[in-house]
């Protein structure tokens, strides 16, 4: 079980990285608006369905 002495600190370092990523995402403003993104996501798929109408320009990007 001595492996614990290496694995546990290693796990904590990974957790630390995840926490750092989270803190960065919050400070970057990615969690400022929690209502619009879940709604926006639902409409994403239709871009591909609509493009055949005007093949030269993609209206959404």
């Amino acid at each position: 079980m001595e492996v614990i002495y290496i694995v546990l600190p290693l796990a904590l370092i990974i957790v630390g990285a995840a926490v750092a990523a989270y803190v960065w995402s919050v400070r970057d403003g990615q969690l400022d608006d929690l209502e619009s993104p879940p709604v926006r996501m639902l409409f994403d798929d239709e871009v591909s369905r609509r493009t055949p109408r005007s093949p030269s320009v993609n209206p959404d990007r």
């Binding site: 796990a11 904590l12 957790v15 995840a18 926490v19 989270y22 803190v23 919050v26 400070r27 403003g29 969690l31 400022d32």
Partner: peptide, 21 residues
């Protein structure tokens, strides 16, 4: 207000991760 919101979100996230560990 946005800064304050973010500060409390950071606190919550960090303490959540710590609680789990």
């Amino acid at each position: 207000r946005r800064q304050e919101d973010r500060a409390i979100l950071v606190r919550m996230g960090v303490s959540g991760a710590i609680a789990a560990n």
